[in-house]
Simulated scan of single mutants.
Amino acid sequence: MQRNSLNMAQQPSADDKAMVQPKRYALSKALRLLLLLLLSVLVFTAARFGLGNALFKPVEGQIRILQTISNDTASNNTASNDKAHDNNQTVHAQSALQAIYQQQLTAINRVLWLHRNPQYLEAKAQLLELGVRFGFNDKTQALTQANRLYIESITKRPAWPVTYSSLALNKWHLGEFDRDFVTYLVQAHYLGKNVPQVKQVWQYVANSINQASTSELAMLFTELFKEHSAIVAYYQQADNANATPTQQVK
């Protein structure tokens, strides 16, 4: 009798069961809501990234076209032409080009609102640089903003050598020959010494030291790169056909 009494005392009553069931139901419902919320966030993020990529592709193509136009324009500037109708054509072409440029700048800003992917960040930086080439942007403001984008890109993709060489080249055009300038170039060298964009900037430095060893810039570079003389020698021995940049950006 005593054992039966103990067993009966240990068994939950009907009231206890009635209290436990709603708690289990509430917990199960909360878990389902949490999973639904998590799934919604994942779907939204995937959709946002996918839309950003879809919007980026046309911008990427337009940037390539603008880069080609920029290179062609630089080549054509070596020949002078003073005809009035040619000047009028140039004005109309420049106006149309600026409209295209602004459209792409708006488009890349929309893409970056959706996803700040390193590739998208660097695409906007390249657009800002093109704006300087075409005369649409203030040089100092645009290149400083471009470098901020490159630095943000490095935090997301730190092993991409072209980002560092782009930073260094922009600092060249800004006249910022400091320790950061050296650091970016050295990092670019170690990550991709034979990448064309990296070789280009390093050969600018090597040629400046080699061709005008008594100039102010050569003496400055000799001092800045004295701890990296082996790297400088590597590029001095390479193809030195590239000239030092003057008016063009990149």
Rank of each mutant, 00 (worst) to 15 (best):
L27F: 08
L27G: 11
S28A: 15
L31W: 12
L33S: 13
L42C: 09
L42W: 06
A46I: 03
A46G: 09
R48G: 05
G50I: 12
G50T: 08
G52H: 04
N53Q: 15
K57I: 13
P58M: 02
Q62I: 07
Q62G: 08
R64L: 12
Q67S: 10
I69C: 03
N71V: 09
D72E: 09
T73C: 03
A74Y: 11
N76C: 06
N81R: 06
N81F: 05
N81S: 14
H85N: 14
D86Q: 05
S95Q: 12
S95P: 00
A96N: 14
L97I: 02
Y101L: 03
Y101G: 04
Q104V: 09
R110W: 04
V111R: 00
L114F: 04
Q119F: 12
Y120S: 10
L128H: 00
E129T: 14
G131I: 10
G131A: 02
G135N: 10
G135V: 11
F136C: 03
F136T: 13
D138T: 01
Q141R: 05
L143T: 07
Q145K: 07
A146T: 08
A146R: 04
R148T: 13
L149V: 02
Y150L: 15
I151F: 13
I151E: 12
I154E: 07
R157V: 01
P158G: 07
W160G: 00
